[in-house]
Design a binder for these strands. Structure first.
Lengths: 156, 156
DNA sequence: CCTTGTTAATTGCTTTGTTAAGTGTTTTGC
DNA sequence: GCAAAACACTTAACAAAGCAATTAACAAGG
């Protein structure tokens, strides 16, 4: 396209951040549409998924597991508490902590959307290739283990 | 962790959307820090990259290339125009379109950060493996080609 | 012409991301 | 014990995402 100069950086098609962003958009766009019907955002869905899978936990851990920042989580949980999708109570042993648990209503949201979600990922597997999908997940998980930019420093 | 029931959905560690989100966070966190020093957000950086690579283009195409929604792009470009990083002019042939081009100042931002960016990705290549990184990019690009959820419908 | 339809960009509104500062609570070191 | 540090959230402020509705400019048909 642009022959005016030798590119300083790799082409954006070979840029990892941009490729990740596009891939996420590709995958999430249909799911977002699906969830919108229940008034559940992508983030709320992640929260429900994590709580349903791993059981009650404090907000810091939940934030890490659901890939949300604590300030965002605070606001989202407030809304979800209003929707009765989750419940919170302060930890008796450490009153700084607040323990979050999924409610029956929250679990129902998961039950309701599981078939659609499964259908979507089944289609994805078929069109993309089951083996390739596993490969991709392995590569992504390995990348997440790298903990870049802190290779000498402590790991919080 | 949670033995209360058989999970309806795959474990979040094997969930593609979550894995993509974590990977993006892993990669972008150090870059964001790097760019913040120049008052350039991650999004502005993407815009500069795309314009520098492919030359002037209208906003719709730029939005697609930089993975931004048109409304977001409108507001970001207004700021970038104020910073003199980009310039806009209406297309003479079609006065609905506005053509965006990178300025010298914009190009300077890229030049200034290219060494850091290159160093970061070199480190990434070394620690993650050059071959594996290529594999990952190939898999991601293939995924982006799938255009999921519109397999019978028209492709706008 | 001129109505209808389409497209490009903008604006409004609500939610979320991001950073920094603030508020209690617990832990640590003296 | 007790002041200082560390910790778990919460709040505040602003940028950006995401969605719907609007405006302005083209395109086609009658």
């Amino acid at each position: 396209m642009n022959d005016r100069h030798t590119p300083l950086l790799r082409r954006t098609a070979r840029s990892l951040p941009i490729a990740l962003l596009r891939a996420r958009e590709t995958v999430m766009a249909p799911l977002r549409e699906m969830l919108a019907a229940s008034g559940v955002s992508e983030q709320k869905w992640r929260i429900l998924r994590v709580l349903d899978e791993a059981g009650p936990m404090d907000q810091s851990l939940l934030a890490e597991q659901a890939c949300l920042q604590l300030p965002s989580l605070t606001r989202i949980l407030r809304a979800m508490e209003g929707q009765k999708l989750i419940a919170r109570h302060v930890d008796a042993a450490d009153r700084r902590r607040s323990i979050v648990a999924i409610t029956d209503a929250g679990h129902n949201v998961i039950t309701r959307h599981a078939p659609d979600s499964i259908a979507f990922f089944t289609e994805l597997e078929q069109r993309y290739g089951k083996k390739r999908l596993q490969e991709l997940l392995d590569l992504l998980n390995d990348l997440n283990k790298l903990d870049l930019g802190r290779q000498g420093t402590d790991r919080r």
